[in-house]
Amino acid sequence: MADKVLMKGNEAIAEAAIKAGCRHYFGYPITPQTEVAAYMAKRMPKIGGTFLQAESEIAAINMVYGVASAGLRVMTSSSSPGISLKGEGISYLAGADLPALVVNVQRGGPGLGGIQPSQSDYFQSTRGGGHGDYHMIVLAPSSVQEMAEMTVKGFELADKYRMTAMVLADGTMGQMMEPVDLNFEVAPAPEKPWATTGTEMKRKHNIVNSLSLVPEELEKLNIARFERYELVKRNETMYEEYMMDDADIAIAAFGIAARVSKNAVNEARKRGIKAGLIRPITLWPFPDAPFKKAATHVKQFISVELNMGQMIEDVRLASECKVPVTLCNRVGGMIPSPEQVLDAIVKASK
């Protein structure tokens, strides 16, 4: 492939997944992520992979469960209402400790909502999404290049911790076109001695299952899983700080909201207001450290979100409510403009 290619975010996800060795994609079309499926439909047959448009989202996520059990890199993608349908299957993946990649290109809701961008599945993604005690690793790209890189990262982390990783994007990230450099290295997938690949009569058979008959054992499994989550928190938390060293006002924003906010921070700096940005890249685990640190010198956090205020709760928790946290938002498919964010910064500076 050429040095750079012009891709939609959705296409970048699909091509990066192929680059990461994913040869199994199961999905069901829904705007604004349909290009992931369309791209896979075109590419997979040419590289000996499997593209399957399932009869429903529920079928697709259970096919993911099957391939993950066999130890192969596998993914599905959807948008908000479709992710809700997959919720049960995602919980089963967690219960069986299976690595998989789920992509959510969010649209406005609740219900059928609309087809324009949104970040209103933050709670759903970071708290698990389906039933039961579990987490997914949630990655929030903020450019088409990151859509590709986070997809690869998602596969790697999923394998490393036997967890589901989610790329949480939104309609703008999925639809926008930007030049992408896909010439980066991808480490080969690790060995998966737990996978159900056939014993060849040489070992005890492996079992993949999320059902436990003995409550004492189920408790142990849950505790062990959360010990693993602690490792993820310690090792894999990612964030970007922008002009935070001397900041008086800190914006918290991820994905498309972070891009808008960066413009607003630059504009505020031109006006002599010391604004900065903390951009969580992993939404779970949430990057507590930069917020805790910033709370010692900023006088206000502004959480910029495309929802009615969801990440704001994590900002409050991480900063231990030491300084006020306010919300700057648009919903229903709308995006805060750089002017709106700037206004919020100016107001906070007074």
Partner: peptide
């Protein structure tokens, strides 16, 4: 046509 689009490269 666009040489820089991945599926028509």
């Amino acid at each position: 046509i666009n040489k820089y689009r991945p599926l028509t490269a």
